Amino acid sequence: MLPREHRVRDGRELNNIVRSGTRKGCRNFVVSTIVHPGGENGPARFGFIVSKKVGNAVARNVVKRRLREAAWQQISAGFTGADVVVRALPASARAPYAALAKDLDQGMRRLRPTQPSAPTPVAETAE
């Protein structure tokens, strides 16, 4: 279970993120993200949508547990400053954890806000 500060708990927030967020799809799910207005100051929050199209209750719960663990790995790696909703596709029921974690990592890398590049140092000339 993700800690409370890392969960999107309200259905209206889930809908807002899915409708107005940046979207990237992969074979197993679609990732929607909204970057926090304050930048990377706030904690990352994750929400999951796993419909009955994914499978029966057992399959849906397995997918949710795997996605929660993959999300926790992202948070542990330092991902902050965005709200993320992961909508599982039917293929996710057959995918092993490693494939789900890899897809989430790739999706998150594509959606992360671009970091400003560090200024290049100016070479000092001896006068």
Rank of each mutant, 00 (worst) to 15 (best):
M1G: 12
M1E: 15
P3T: 02
P3Y: 11
V8T: 03
V8Q: 06
R9I: 11
R9T: 15
D10L: 13
G11D: 10
R12L: 11
R12W: 11
L14Q: 04
N16Y: 13
R19A: 14
G21S: 03
G21T: 00
T22D: 12
T22P: 00
R23K: 13
R23P: 05
R23S: 13
R23N: 12
G25E: 11
N28M: 05
N28Y: 15
F29V: 01
F29G: 03
V30S: 09
T33W: 09
T33V: 15
T33D: 05
V35C: 06
P37L: 04
P37A: 13
G39N: 03
G39H: 03
E40Y: 05
G42N: 12
A44D: 05
A44L: 14
F48K: 01
V50P: 02
S51D: 12
S51H: 10
K52R: 15
A57S: 14
R60P: 08
R60N: 09
N61G: 04
N61A: 13
V62W: 11
V63F: 10
V63D: 12
L67G: 04
R68N: 07
E69L: 14
A70D: 06
A70C: 07
A71P: 05
A71I: 04
Q73T: 05
Q74T: 00
A77N: 09
A77H: 07
G78A: 04
T80Y: 11
G81R: 01
G81V: 08
D83R: 08
V84G: 00
R87K: 10
R87T: 15
A91R: 10
P96T: 07
Y97G: 00
Y97D: 02
Y97I: 04
Y97W: 06
A99W: 02
L100Q: 05
A101T: 02
K102V: 06
K102C: 08
D103P: 05
L104C: 05
L104G: 01
Q106Y: 06
G107F: 04
M108D: 06
M108H: 03
R109K: 14
L111A: 02
R112Q: 10
T114R: 11
T114S: 11
T114M: 09
T120E: 14
V122Y: 03
A123M: 07
E124S: 07
T125Y: 05
T125M: 09
A126D: 15
E127A: 13
